[in-house]
Write a protein that binds this DNA or RNA. Structure first.
Lengths: 339, 339
DNA sequence: CTGAAAGCGCTTACAG
DNA sequence: CTGAAAGCGCTTACAG
């Protein structure tokens, strides 16, 4: 077992050139002659040399590492987004240092600390809320932050979300125009901008349709909470015949609970979700839902982050991307709706 | 905007001590007086100093970064495992550099290259196959590798899997003892040890029960492939009344296809999966399946990796963890089975 | 185009 | 316990 740490100096010795020459051969854009390049590459090959990214990062001040902070991965939306994000960043020569953080301030603070210690070039958070003080810490260190699928009212942070207000309104219009008398809402966590905005859009939309205020229960983005909310709604004195659920992840829990209770979807109650995760199209759920355009959201996230990286004076951006309502079998349509 | 890069030298100046003293204060276990510690911490605090992990990594030769290579995240087993892994490693002061790689040799080779360049202390792969030559490259660099949920026959790599042979055999016994005449198998990718072993265990188990050889189709761990396999099986001349599916992810696709075809589970056909991902217990699927004990598998993976990190002469280990068959509603039981 | 030299921000023997 | 000094593996002006 060789256990070799081959350095540029080793390569230089074998190739009979200076260490700087070796460095240049491995620095894109540096000026080296053909002959030099050949000699060095040959020596490097024979020794199995590979430039040390850490040393390079120290000198250049660019680690080409992006810190990613995620709260949970059990909602299928996030693994899918992570997969895309990872590919998008790898293509551009960046790497992802990943952190799982709860949504407590301490956990996030600890993570930000580690992130800064590792000299990440930028930070992306998903389903995580960042306090203003942490954000300030990052921008003091000159590190851009982009919030994915979450906005931060007021804070000076870039964010990329879908058009949540409009999305909620779309669901309101759809449900109100269909054969539904009593509409309820199991909301996304109201402490998150995403959950809050969808709910506001929904309420506003319902009012515009001159519908009564619906019952609203906060499902906290949690299966169990959503399931219990469903039970209490359906066992109440005036069970709803339509429920808008704040995201698909909870909508599945709602449908599972309904099935357990012996109720049928959409026969007894129409269900509409939000996200359009892959599972939403599976036959078991066949869920009508608002699509969040993951691909475009990820592209926007990466572009925003990289542009801030390359131009620190760049203004922060709050990007919203609109997504369509996808009609499937979980919600009844108006009688005169196009089949 | 300060954009400060505060270094230990800055802190030293403010505290009126040497730079080495500052370093010691931030090095656990180094000897510093109370007074020194107080002075330095105060200065550090006021400047917002944080030791540079990259510089530290260069000196110590330990980056405390673990490279994680994953092929896909659409199978719910992996996000769950990643979440646990991340927590386990964070607790121990390690960080995860994540890479998505296809299962092509080139993609994996490129990733390994990056991993080595970033001086990772160790590598964990999940659902990825690593050729012997890549493994050799890593061990030449003195970097331990642990395969998670995949074995590598022959190669000198540590691995952690469930007891796949025994798991397959368990399913065979269960199905053979139940009211099933024609048993089929939609297998996990036969190019992976995991898929192959489950199939071998299943076939051996069926023989032990003196059952005829089942029809076997490779589902490639792919929803679409599994769905098509289901269709061709059920539309064949002798449709099965029980199917063992190589993992839960495909089992869901099988059940979705069955539903689309108007067939009932377990009425027309019993379905058994493998993994016991969270979704398996959801009412929509209620899947009988072999549990892979994720928590214990992750613990074993981390322990194996860290022990190899701390003792390079440590032997490689191939760990198998047994998991139970979880009975749910997707498969018929023998008449005399305990209810 | 090429080499000698300085320096990135640390840790760690080595003296005192 | 504390400080001066060397060195981790690179990049990058600066001369030639």
């Amino acid at each position: 077992m060789t256990e070799t740490k081959v350095t540029s100096l080793d390569v230089a010795r074998v190739a009979g050139v200076s260490q700087s020459a070796v460095s240049r051969v491995f620095t894109p854009g540096a000026s080296v002659s053909k002959g030099m390049e050949a000699k060095v590459k040959k020596a490097a090959e024979s020794l199995g040399y590979r430039p040390n990214s850490l040393a390079r990062a120290m000198i250049t001040g660019k680690s080409r590492i992006i810190g990613l902070v995620v709260a949970y991965l059990d909602n299928q939306f996030y693994p899918v987004a992570l997969e895309r994000l990872s590919h998008a960043l790898q293509e551009r020569g960046y790497h992802i240092l990943i952190f799982m953080a709860g949504n407590t301030h301490e956990a996030v603070a600890k993570v930000v600390d580690d992130l800064l210690a590792y000299q990440v070039d930028g930070i992306i958070t998903a389903s995580v809320d960042m306090s203003g003080s942490l954000a300030a810490q990052c921008s003091a260190a000159g590190i851009p932050v982009v919030l994915f699928n979450r906005g931060q009212p007021g804070a000076g942070l870039s964010s990329v979300t879908s058009a949540n207000l409009e999305g909620g309104a779309k669901v309101a219009r759809f449900l109100a125009q269909g054969p539904h008398e009593r509409i309820a809402h199991i909301a996304g966590w109201q402490g998150s901008s995403t959950g809050f905005d969808r709910t506001q859009g929904f309420l506003t939309g319902l009012r515009a349709q001159e519908r009564p205020e619906p019952t609203v229960i906060d499902g906290m983005y949690d299966r169990e909470t959503a399931a219990q909310a469903t039970r209490s709604l359906m066992e109440g004195s005036a069970p709803p015949d339509a429920i808008f659920v704040g995201n698909d992840h909870m909508a599945f829990a709602v449908m599972d609970m309904l099935k357990t209770m012996g109720l049928s979807v959409p026969g007894d109650v129409s269900i509409v979700g939000y996200d359009d995760v892959p599972m939403a199209s599976w036959a078991a759920y066949d869920l009508t839902t608002v699509r969040q355009p993951v691909n475009r959201m990820i592209e926007a996230t990466v572009e925003t982050l990289l542009s801030q990286l390359n131009d620190p004076d760049r203004h922060i951006q709050k990007i919203e991307i609109d997504g369509p309502l996808i009609l499937r079998g979980s919600a009844r349509l108006a009688k005169d709706a196009p089949s």
